Amino acid sequence: HNGKLCKLKGIAPLQLGKCNITGWLLGNPECDSLLPARSWSYIVETPNSENGACYPGDLIDYEELREQLSSVSSLERFEIFPKESSWPNHTFNGVTVSCSHRGKSSFYRNLLWLTKKGDSYPKLTNSYVNNKGKEVLVLWGVHHPSSSDEQQSLYSNGNAYVSVASSNYNRRFTPEIAARPKVRDQHGRMNYYWTLLEPGDTIIFEATGNLIAPWYAFALSRGFESGIITSNASMHECNTKCQTPQGAINSNLPFQNIHPVTIGECPKYVRSTKLRMVTGLRNIPSIQYRGLFGAIAGFIEGGWTGMIDGWYGYHHQNEQGSGYAADQKSTQNAINGITNKVNSVIEKMNTQFTAVGKEFNNLEKRMENLNKKVDDGFLDIWTYNAELLVLLENERTLDFHDLNVKNLYEKVKSQLKNNAKEIGNGCFEFYHKCDNECMESVRNGTYDYPKYSEESKLNREKIDGVKLESMGVYQILAIYSTVASSLVLLVSLGAISFWMCSNGSLQCRICI
């Protein structure tokens, strides 16, 4: 991952900044910058967002509201009850120091605090018919004063009620008058409520006091790749198909172990950190130390980045220098085999997901714990399936590479015959000098055995068991695999060879 928040398929997220979902939807004055928000790819909250409900109280069923919003990608904020005409018999300019803005008392931008007009609070009834052709999110509140005197001074009615009804919602609220500790300079409380109004449905408000009335509502448009994440990451000019709280993932790998919460087309989250597919040879310690064997393909974004291909070729060293050249036929066979294998694994496992966190309130801790156990169970199954699949494929890959290298080895052996000696570690020792032209003939299969047989015969008789390297004779190393990324691999195959001279070296080696 890149540690950044990015656009998702070209669409920017909605960053709530210092506000949370509650503050944004109710219209906390400190969240005025969010009022123009219309569309987004996903919503970003920060872990310690401080601006929620400015007048103390709870947004009821907040967790369910977050779940609903996680599939919303755009909205239209509109005046559901026009301020100047909807409440002619009531005062609608209630403000509070708890919702101060720029040093002055204020109130929510989407709600109206209705109080008595003169000395009376006549029963009010108002309704709205949803003609938007889509779901409408309606929010309101109920004020709970701290004393009967406060109730009387604001609403005149000691036994007030609030009723809200639609086809799918029907509740009646009565204020709970009680002494409470002071929070944000208030002994009173406000509880906030919401409902989704279906197209064509009607919502009716009736009250004799204590109503925090809707002013603006939201017509919602769903987008199934949307979601809500909690993150401290910063926004950058970048684009992605998959976003996590820790950063964007741009990967076609089937798995990731970065974060379980994802938005967009994302690899499946697994616990494993070692889900690797081999593309090189079986481990040979001396070669492995030099980083030549054991190439791997990573299938977990965050564990290993991208696929690494092994390729086969020849390396030689003689009086004229040293050089490398790919054996294109065996390399292409290996590439085709690995590509098919990788595609097979991805096809089997690479279903892209959006995974969002589930919200539970403080009273639902047991449910949250149960949900976590269920999620953990599914996660263990996914991890096991992934590891088992790759384990089985790896064994076949190792066998496949062994065969490829063996074929190259036999190709060289059949040409050199007794003009060189096998020394048991995949290397041959020449009994004759071999210049670049000679080396090329070994690589392309045109090695002239009779041409060098007499010199080889004489050297075999002279050496008589002495280690060949100390006599200045020449080696050919018969097994060799270097490691390159897919891009470098293609470039390498396009070149005939490249040279690395070893000044004054008397050794001649050709490596497979």
Rank of each mutant, 00 (worst) to 15 (best):
Y324N: 03
T305F: 08
L416E: 03
C238K: 06
S453M: 03
R460Q: 13
N283A: 00
D309T: 05
F430C: 03
T446L: 14
C438Y: 09
A233V: 11
A325Q: 01
N394V: 03
S414G: 14
N350E: 05
S234G: 14
K421A: 14
Q288D: 08
S234V: 08
S486Y: 08
A297E: 07
M471Q: 15
K417G: 14
E437W: 13
L403I: 14
Y384A: 11
V412M: 11
C438N: 08
E387H: 09
P450H: 11
F498L: 10
D464Y: 13
I296M: 15
T354K: 09
L490K: 15
E368V: 04
L389M: 07
Y447I: 04
Q352S: 01
L490P: 00
N436I: 07
E237W: 06
Y474G: 11
S453D: 01
S286A: 13
N340Y: 02
Q317V: 15
I335S: 01
G424E: 06
I463F: 00
G472P: 15
P267D: 01
M307Q: 00
K372S: 11
I263E: 02
S286Y: 01
M367G: 05
T244G: 04
N239F: 07
T383C: 09
D435R: 15
V473S: 09
G247K: 04
W304F: 06
D376R: 06
F255D: 02
S456Q: 02
N369Y: 07
N394K: 13
S492F: 09
P285C: 02
N283F: 07
K274R: 10
T351F: 05
P254S: 11
E440W: 12
M277A: 05
F378N: 12
S231N: 12
K406E: 12
K274E: 00
S322R: 05
G303M: 09
S485A: 12
T482L: 12
K329M: 11
I249L: 14
E387Y: 05
E359Y: 11
N343R: 12
L458Q: 07
L487Q: 06
L275S: 08
A297S: 15
H432F: 07
R282F: 07
E237C: 00
T354C: 10
